[in-house]
């Protein structure tokens, strides 16, 4: 299988062509102009991860929601499952910067933490 992607390791944005076998293993990477491009292609094809940022509803705060993020990047495919859990939660003010609001979300081993205080 051939996969096309844009490298975001730097602003150059090389167009990468990645050749994969049936087991989703990378056979070759072309189009990159440095080593980081090759690493990026490998990571994106084998285990793509993203930081998830969103908001959680707040009880008794100065605003109805508080911004949050994942404490570490999570598998790309789990973003929408995590959103479902986060949107079903309500937390009580006061909330400290960096406070863990949901721990081990969707068994990722990653926490949802506040990115502001309220």
């Amino acid at each position: 299988m051939i996969k096309e992607m844009t490298c975001v390791a730097c602003p150059l944005g090389c167009q990468l062509t990645v050749e994969l076998n049936d087991k989703n293993e990378v056979l070759s990477v072309t189009g990159n102009t440095c080593k980081r491009g090759e690493q990026y292609a490998h990571d994106e094809c084998t285990n793509p991860v993203r930081m998830l940022t969103t908001t959680i509803k707040v009880n008794g705060g100065s605003l109805p929601v508080i911004p949050v993020k994942t404490s570490a990047p999570i598998p790309k495919g789990k973003m929408f499952d995590c959103m479902k859990v986060i949107n079903s939660e309500v937390v009580d003010a006061p909330i400290k910067m960096g406070e863990v609001l949901i721990s081990n979300i969707c068994d990722t081993g990653v926490d949802i933490v506040a990115t502001n205080e309220m």
């Binding site: 844009t6 975001v8 602003p11």
Partner: peptide, 12 residues
């Protein structure tokens, strides 16, 4: 926009 945003906001 920044390339990173095209990839992570649109392509994703």
């Amino acid at each position: 926009g920044l390339t990173r945003n095209i990839v992570q906001c649109l392509d994703d």
